[in-house]
Simulated scan of single mutants.
Amino acid sequence: MKKTQSLLLISTLIAPMMLGTAGVSAKSAEANPPKETLVRIHAVTDMNATAVDRRDQHDYWGNGGIQDLNKIVEDNSSWEPTVGATYEAFALPTGTVTYEGEDMKPVINDTFHATVDGKEWRWTDILKPVRADKLGAATTNLIKKDGNISPWTIEIAGGMDVRKAVYALTDLDPRTPHPKSFKNTDAQGLTEMSLAKGQWVIAEDLEANIKSTASVPMFIDIPMIKPDAKQGGDDFWYDNTQADALNLYAKQYDPTTLKVKKADKETGKALAGAQVLVTENTHEEQLKKVLPELLAAIKKQPKDAAKLVEQYVPELKTGNYAIRKTDKSGEATFSSDNAGERFMTPGHTYAVIELAAPTGYIVEPQIQDVELSMEKNPADSRAG
């Protein structure tokens, strides 16, 4: 059975939003949205001994209603409540997200910016509009085809360490209240709290919850419309009652690990001191274009490798990469259990690049693709 001391939480909330309501009676439910909504977070963990390939899995369950975990069958997974998880809700400044056009595409305000640990963040670095109706298995929400429900949702980008950036950005506006803390999840993996009308980011409170090592926050825009809501109908909004609360099911998984070994081609001797980059292979084409120049710059300034990587490939400023040095055994270990590598996901493919060679050796400008294994102990990737 998996150990719950090392968990990876990935959550994607599909937020159905109403388009125009012209001609609707003022007495109808949609014309009277609730001022508060009861938000119920259900933390659930995959307890199966074998890792699950998440490429074709949705990371968030349900459409806001209650789900029966006993009836959910997903590959070889076995889902159980997670006890003791803690979350915080960050109120976003007014106007952070607006909606435009007939399909109400979200537009993110990038006016505010904050620097956290030497990196500049804007809301456009964190909040990413995504077509919900094209996510396939990423959601079980019922997206209507009649135009009443917006096909857009917002996902959280920037890796697993955006919580600090969210805190800093919300703190820029003096009108924005401090984050509200949920109680620890109970024996059923449940915690709940009423949230006022507005836009929120819900993130796991890692300082309070040592059982989980990583989390991807969730964006919600309250009040939220039920996916099966009908104009003129009474059962329209998720509200502040237990019967119509907004239920979020956050799935948790074990972390994944990748070991990269540096050795002498002739003797096989382990080499310490090589700098190795691991990032999502979606950035591979851009890396290929700049790799010779990037390696030359790092050779002159090896201590500035991270800064130079972000300079030559700006897309990596969101934190979806990691750089480590090989140790005396010639190994550099990357794990989603560590803060710097929390973007890593089992079953996904990553690019591995040697940025700086040990003393007396030269760097070969090449990119190796590695698909992270579903096994508990993935095979090493060897760099010559």
Rank of each mutant, 00 (worst) to 15 (best):
L372F: 12
L295Y: 06
F334D: 03
P346G: 07
E293Y: 13
G384M: 06
Q5W: 11
E36P: 00
A296L: 13
N141C: 14
A305Y: 10
K230H: 12
T359E: 14
K303I: 00
D133N: 12
A332G: 01
L287D: 03
I323C: 03
R131K: 15
D68T: 09
I41H: 04
P358H: 14
L206R: 14
N247L: 04
A306M: 11
F334T: 03
S150L: 14
A85H: 06
N63T: 11
E120Q: 09
G340R: 09
A305E: 10
S335T: 14
K325C: 02
D254I: 02
P302C: 12
A356F: 13
F182M: 06
D264H: 11
K230A: 14
Y350D: 01
N48R: 04
I154A: 04
I149V: 13
E207R: 07
L172V: 06
E102W: 09
H348E: 15
G273C: 05
M1Y: 03
V107C: 03
M374R: 09
F182D: 06
S77L: 02
V116D: 04
S28D: 15
E100H: 03
D133F: 04
M17K: 08
N240F: 10
H348A: 15
S212E: 12
T124C: 05
A29C: 09
A274Y: 11
V290W: 10
Q252E: 14
K303P: 00
W61C: 02
D125M: 05
Q231L: 15
V130K: 09
G84M: 05
K251S: 10
T176Q: 12
